[in-house]
Design a protein around this nucleic acid. Sequence first.
RNA 1: GCUUCCUUAGCUCAGUCGGUUAGAGCAACUGGCUGUUAACCAGUAGGUCCUUGGUUCGAGUCCAAGAGGGAGCGCCA
Length: 471
Amino acid sequence: MKMNIKQLLEQKSIGTQATISAWVRTKRQSKNVAFINLNDGSTIHNLQVVAETIEEAILAKINTGACIKVEGNIVESSGQQAIELNAEKITILGEADPEKYPLQPKKHSLEFLREIAHLRPRTQTFSAIFRIRHALAFAIHQYFNDNGFFYLHTPIITASDAEGAGEMFRVTTLDLNKLPKDENNNINYKEDFFGKETNLTVSGQLEGELGAMALSKIYTFGPTFRAENSNTSRHLAEFWMIEPEVAFYELEDNMALAEDFLKYVIAYALKNCKDDLEFLEKRLLEEEKSKPQNERSELALLDKLNFVVSNDFEKLTYTNAVEILKNAKKKFQYPVDWGTDLQSEHERYLVEKHFQKPVILTDYPTEIKAFYMKQSEDGKTVRAMDVLFPGIGEIIGGSQREDNFEKLKNRAAQVGIHAEQIWWYLETRQFGACPHAGFGLGFERLVLFVTGMTNIRDVIPFPRTPKSAEF
RNA sequence: GCUUCCUUAGCUCAGUCGGUUAGAGCAACUGGCUGUUAACCAGUAGGUCCUUGGUUCGAGUCCAAGAGGGAGCGCCA
């Protein structure tokens, strides 16, 4: 295999020959020597190439953004880096016209980089983010595998609109200009590809439950689609969700799983992405210099992550949270009342002001939660849980599931879901039903938290949001 | 979907009370420089002031509509 910059910098084999292909970050040239900083995305660190004997015609084409292949000798550096590559031969693989290439060796705004999403992975910030994103995805699979979970692939295309988790994207092969009609002049979906209305999935949970009723411990990790007209820094129309589902787990087990899982993957990033996290921490500190004192974060990025890993999450019921909020001195824009859903400002107060740590809220009023959640003895609440993170808000939503056939069927009917639509789901409550629980983790929200970024569009390579699907 | 802010050179931004030829830093280009670290020094070039319409003797500046973007809210992960 060809060596990359990460391996070369780690091995420090001074005196040996090496060939590296990478993109030019900067070039500094004087009369007799040129210095070229190269990066191939394998690490946040650049490789310095020294070019003393390279002809001028080649050197002239080595501009920021160009791709080159360098063959040379690894030598000790007299500069600030340990080693550098003394170029004997440089081949231009791809030029980058400096008049047109939009990335410069200077600070660009995240908004500008979002508009050139095809090039932004070449920046330090975004390559660091995407390496961390990869590490977190890997850690998630590792955690579940090590703990006896099976990765279950739930469908992307679904005919059920049962969860009611949001507006859905229609999937059809019908000619939109010539829609077939039935005898009542409605669209005849019997002629569509699947013979019925289909959409992109908003959650793999219902199918995940089917898997848990056989394999006991499963998880899904796949793309999820919501056609909501959401314009916020924490919503995407296409995002990745992790949904474990476990037979014989009750709410308390579910909470313990969520906390242990989050701590594991964050600890994994701390251990395996140190360089990238340190870079992002420095970047954040720079950015915060321009903010007023009271808007700066209290902990630097690494301290924040270490804090979350080494402290217990605060756990309390919705009812207790409402009490705390009612007694809070802070004036809220929206009033707090038992039975209404908590607003962003309420959740932020609990997490960022009152407890100053991750919070798990449980036992929400039945009316404000989904139909499949386990109904409590009190007749007023369900065994739901939301995990709230500072700066992010809800990162996990989950519950123990209603495993009683009659209760589930009745609750579904109450919210307008017909039994025949989800007959297969209901049957699991008739054939060997058992207590079970699970949750959904928004992957991008996790990446947001770990990288310290603030807009969800910056932690997915090619974000899909309303009116935006360019790349 | 709602509220609010923004849009001036490739990028980041300044532009006073509506006034004559729209500025800066960085990038680019040219030249200089024996080891630089977002190199440095000197010079050159670079503008549909987002678009359309309006008010005015006169609009980058005021008004209206539209487009794009940000932040906040709702929906949620």
